[in-house]
């Protein structure tokens, strides 16, 4: 086999390898809008641990651990059908009263199962009940997985 005859094959193989390796990058994009209602599980200092149900585009069970300070910040995991989605976020509280509203953003940084390559960013809005620490969080964003 001459060099000339090998070249088209090599090119085809290289193209195939490139296509396969690019496959994970061609992620599915999902415009997601969800609402989670979380209830108090435990607290220590300024850190709250909560869990509850998320409904909407990605329904499932949600666990969150976050700090209530000058800003609200923390991490979360949603256990959805086929895998979990994890990330972190931060929000600024505003207003007063028993129900304190907040807004901010979150980043999806990973997951498991079908969402093991999950990445994304979303806006988040919600209210924090300062009497029983219940949290309602709405997220609107795009998930790539």
């Amino acid at each position: 086999m001459t060099w000339r005859s090998k070249t088209p094959l090599a090119l085809a193989a290289a193209a195939l390898v490139a296509a396969l390796s690019a496959a994970p990058l061609a992620a599915q994009a999902l415009k997601a809008s969800d609402t989670a209602r979380l209830r108090y599980t435990a607290a220590s200092g300024s850190v709250l641990i909560e869990q509850g149900r998320a409904s909407g585009t990605l329904p499932g069970t949600m666990h969150a651990r976050f700090s209530i300070g000058a800003t609200f910040s923390g991490s979360f995991t949603i256990y959805a059908v086929g895998g979990s989605i994890s990330g972190h976020g931060a929000a600024t509280p505003k207003g007063s009263g028993v129900y304190e509203s907040f807004s901010g953003s979150l980043n999806v940084t990973g997951g498991s199962g079908r969402y093991r390559r999950a990445r994304g960013r979303a806006r988040l809005y919600g209210t924090f009940d300062r009497a029983d620490y219940a949290l309602v969080v709405q997220t609107v964003g795009t998930l790539y997985y």
């Binding site: 209530i68 007063s96 620490y133």
Partner: peptide, 12 residues
């Protein structure tokens, strides 16, 4: 750090 001022129920 880690003082639960926001969980104090103060300043409603």
């Amino acid at each position: 750090g880690n003082l639960g001022i926001g969980l104090s129920g103060l300043g409603l």
